[in-house]
Amino acid sequence: MLVYGFINSVILMMIALGFSITFGISRVANFSHGGFYILGGILTWYGLIKLGLPYFLSAGLSIIIVGIIGAVMYRVVLVRLRGLELSEVIATFSLGIVILELLRGLGVFGYEFRNPVFIDGSVEIFGVGVGIQRIIIVCAGAVLLLILHVFVHHTKMGLAFRGVAQQEHTALSVGINPDQVSMLSLAMGSIMCALAAVLILPLGVISVDEGYDILIKALAVCIIGGLESTLGVLVAAFIIGYIEVLTSMYISSSLTSVIPLACMLVILLIRPSGIFGKSKEIEERV
């Protein structure tokens, strides 16, 4: 239980991280997150099965392609809508739906749409058999967090990112181009999203409905953790992850998907800005 909860939590964290990074830096809520996720998975599948590319090449390519799509989306669409929150949301949301429903229309449905695991087999941890894929996910999650931390806190670009996140206009006045940073943040978020897809999707079947699920999960985790806080995402992922596993073990597995909603509503009632959200308290009270 402990082990499965842990893995489940890391999976949730990976899903939510891309969304949270993008929002934290550029304040763009990327509602096409779910679309990018499935796109990343399906591109890998296409490269692997249809084009016969080696696994890692195809995975790498699909991650890069999704990253580019994210950046292009910013350059072409979002740059014209900066500051109009509502329009941004509608634009990204509709792009996500275009991707997902297009894939559905093209016939992405069924058991054949499935990425193989990286390495087959399982090991035993604390007396529980765990697939190697899941262990890879956990390791990748840890590495990702580490890289992210180093990047944000110890590189020049990370500094620029933080600058834009805190005060866009001031950042502009010291020679940082917020548009460029925002574009990069979207590319980064999309890359993380695709990376998560490549790692996690081999555990199941690629399906369009999963795309909506992913978006909901990412949102729920981010809202509970506080939208711009990476630490919050981590903590919230663990909270939801463990609660999900606990519910499916002791109550009913059919209720698992309801739990994030319940958590979210409770958190919203107590602390509207999330557990680690530092967002201005004044705004939150009104």
Partner: peptide, 25 residues
């Protein structure tokens, strides 16, 4: 208590979740 996109996010989630509730229960 939420504003702007925060509110939008929650309204996006609630129907999909409720659907799950009806489906599973």
């Amino acid at each position: 208590g939420l504003r702007g996109i925060y509110f939008s996010m929650v309204t996006l989630i609630i129907p999909l979740m409720l659907m799950r509730v009806v489906e599973t229960t």
